[in-house]
């Protein structure tokens, strides 16, 4: 396969994932805004930071939800905005039409200009509908890929990108919210903490899954364990890395060659398997998270080199 095609697929996977994760983040922020007494513009600031757009906001001024929607949802100058991601995913798809099935192309192509017609006021008015629509695009795209694509290297690169992005988004979200999970957090107990913790679960659509596993016992410890180490939860860091390892292994088998990225991934997988939450807290949650973000970034660069992107 052409390296350009592989790179396009990898980024298509990343863009669609990013669009969906950003929609989920906005949903979380919106939800938090409805909780009495809990709201501060810190929440929007962490949403912006988790989506990688913190620099686009003035550090000293308060962030309004209008500004968030403009920057994270509609702004074409922000390459991480949802509208940019959907456009970019489609542009990538158009550039490698042959590598896509018709089903996949049609999900990318349908409605790709819908956000062009939305302004901030419109986005505020129809927020839930729009967010559902965005998540729906990503889900349909994933479904189309899963049910129509041959399981060859094209599929591997697409899914590799998606899981690298998902791991990255989860880590960034943890990076800006880690203090919520620290046992020695200043404000202990009370309604506000409860909402802080559950908001993390909301942002990752994990509330019900968490209930299912932990029966509603919201302790920061368990939430951190769930989001980082739970191998069954499809947005946890460990799950994403398992998938990254899986798709990298498939590529290695297909091409008969292992690269540095394979060692980085398997090292990370082994580490996530051995660690327990207690150790992570002992070593320092924040250090662990920033370290893993750095590893993920390095892995991305190693994938580039291995496949001549």
């Amino acid at each position: 396969m052409l390296s350009r095609t592989a790179e396009n697929l990898y980024w298509m996977g990343r863009y669609m994932e990013r669009a969906e994760c950003t929609a989920r983040l906005i949903e979380m922020g919106h939800r938090m805004a409805m909780v009495p007494g809990s709201w501060s513009d810190d929440e929007w600031r962490s949403v912006a930071a988790a989506s990688g757009s913190a620099d686009l906001f003035d550090k000293d001024a308060a962030i309004t939800d209008a500004a968030i929607l403009r920057t994270l949802m509609l702004d074409l100058d922000n390459p991480s905005s949802i509208r940019s991601c959907l456009r970019q995913a489609r542009a990538n798809g158009r550039a490698v039409r042959n590598a896509l099935t018709r089903d996949m192309w049609e999900t990318l192509n349908e409605g790709w200009r819908r956000l062009d017609e939305v302004d901030v006021a419109g986005a505020q008015r129809d927020l839930r509908t729009l967010l559902d629509w965005i998540k729906g695009r990503a889900i349909m795209f994933r479904g189309a890929a899963s049910t129509s694509m041959l399981r060859e290297d094209r599929y591997d690169f697409l899914l590799l990108g998606a899981h690298v992005e998902r791991a990255d988004m989860m880590l960034r979200l943890l990076d800006v919210k880690y203090y919520v999970l620290l046992p020695e957090t200043e404000v202990v107990g009370g309604g506000r903490d409860y909402h802080q913790w559950t908001s993390l679960l909301h942002a990752t659509s994990a509330l019900r899954a968490f209930h299912h596993v932990y029966r509603g016992d919201y302790s920061p410890w368990k939430i951190a364990d769930f989001l980082i180490l739970n191998r069954a939860f499809p947005r946890s860091v460990a799950f994403c890395y398992d998938q990254i390892g899986h798709f990298l292994d498939r590529l290695a088998r297909g091409y008969g060659q292992r690269h540095v990225c394979h060692f980085t991934a398997s090292e990370m997988i082994a580490r996530l398997g051995d660690l327990e939450m207690g150790e992570i807290f002992q070593q320092g949650l924040h250090d662990f998270i920033t370290g893993t973000i750095a590893t993920t970034r390095r892995l991305n660069a190693e994938i580039y080199r291995a496949y001549h992107f």
């Binding site: 396969m1 052409l2 390296s3 350009r4 095609t5 592989a6 490698v96 039409r97 042959n98 290297d153 690169f157 590529l251 091409y255 496949y307 001549h308």
Partner: peptide, 29 residues
């Protein structure tokens, strides 16, 4: 893209190709 697809061949852009040792190559994974 349609013709490349129906023929089952790669669709390349100039930057995918290069010349080396008197032959033409494409960059692949």
């Amino acid at each position: 893209s349609f013709l490349a697809d129906l023929m089952g061949v790669e669709l390349v852009e100039p930057q995918d190709l290069f010349v080396d040792e008197g032959l033409c190559w494409m960059r692949t994974t």
